[in-house]
Simulated scan of single mutants.
Amino acid sequence: MATAAGTGTVLECAGPATSGLAAAATAELGPDAAGWARGTRGPVALVRPAGPVRVPGEVPVPAQGQAPVIVDVAWDPGTVLAGTGWLAELLRRPGPLVVVVPATVPGLRRLELSLHQLRHALPTVALVGARHRDRAVNAALDAVTTGLHLTADRVVPVLWDARLATRGLDSTPIPPRLLHAADRLLQAALPGRTTP
């Protein structure tokens, strides 16, 4: 989303063992005094915990970053909201918020629970999956969106990318179709934003 926005900071809250950004930087800048490992990917700053994080409350407090700052919570919302600290406070605020889920029936069950926990933030949903969804997935999605009054414009399909699923995010360019989906997510989560 930061790449689609043209600039910004992605702040990942997962520990080093589960980081999705470990190989994503095109330049590593090393750890800072606050406990964050920093890197860049073109105009986007990538920031992730430099040391282990066992619970959400152990995520270091972030310094001010480039706007916009996109926080990858990387934890179950219920686990974060049950705790204390800056990350819990962040999830208690009104949006914008994007919830990422796989387009599967179990994924949509988790989405329903997450949307109940985060309903105050009016989340946008990134639904990751194939272009053509199974009928059971569509039925589960309809039940969630109807039951929680989630309008269709707040559900953005993100097509599955086999290369990213296999290799993870690395320093190679992000596929254009994912950037397009990221731009749609930004428009849904931040109505009225201007395109760079």
Rank of each mutant, 00 (worst) to 15 (best):
T7S: 14
T9H: 02
V10T: 00
C13L: 09
A14N: 09
S19K: 05
G20P: 00
G20D: 08
L21N: 01
A23Y: 10
A24P: 00
A24E: 03
T26S: 12
A27S: 12
G30D: 09
V44A: 02
A45H: 11
L46T: 07
V47R: 05
G51C: 07
V53S: 03
V53Q: 00
V55M: 10
V55T: 14
V55R: 14
P56T: 04
V61P: 10
P62Y: 10
I70R: 08
V71C: 10
V73W: 01
D76P: 10
G83L: 09
G83A: 06
E89V: 00
L90C: 02
G95Q: 06
P96F: 01
L97W: 03
V98M: 02
V100L: 09
V100T: 05
A103E: 07
P106H: 05
R109C: 10
L111V: 01
Q117F: 03
Q117R: 15
A121T: 06
L122K: 15
P123I: 04
A130F: 06
A130W: 07
R133S: 08
R135P: 13
V137E: 06
L141E: 07
L141R: 09
L141H: 02
G147H: 06
A152I: 09
D153C: 09
V156E: 01
V156L: 07
P157W: 08
A162P: 14
R163V: 15
R167C: 13
G168N: 11
S171N: 14
R177W: 11
R177V: 11
R177S: 13
A181Y: 09
A181C: 13
L185P: 10
Q187Y: 13
L190A: 11
L190R: 13
G192Y: 01
T194Q: 15
T194S: 15
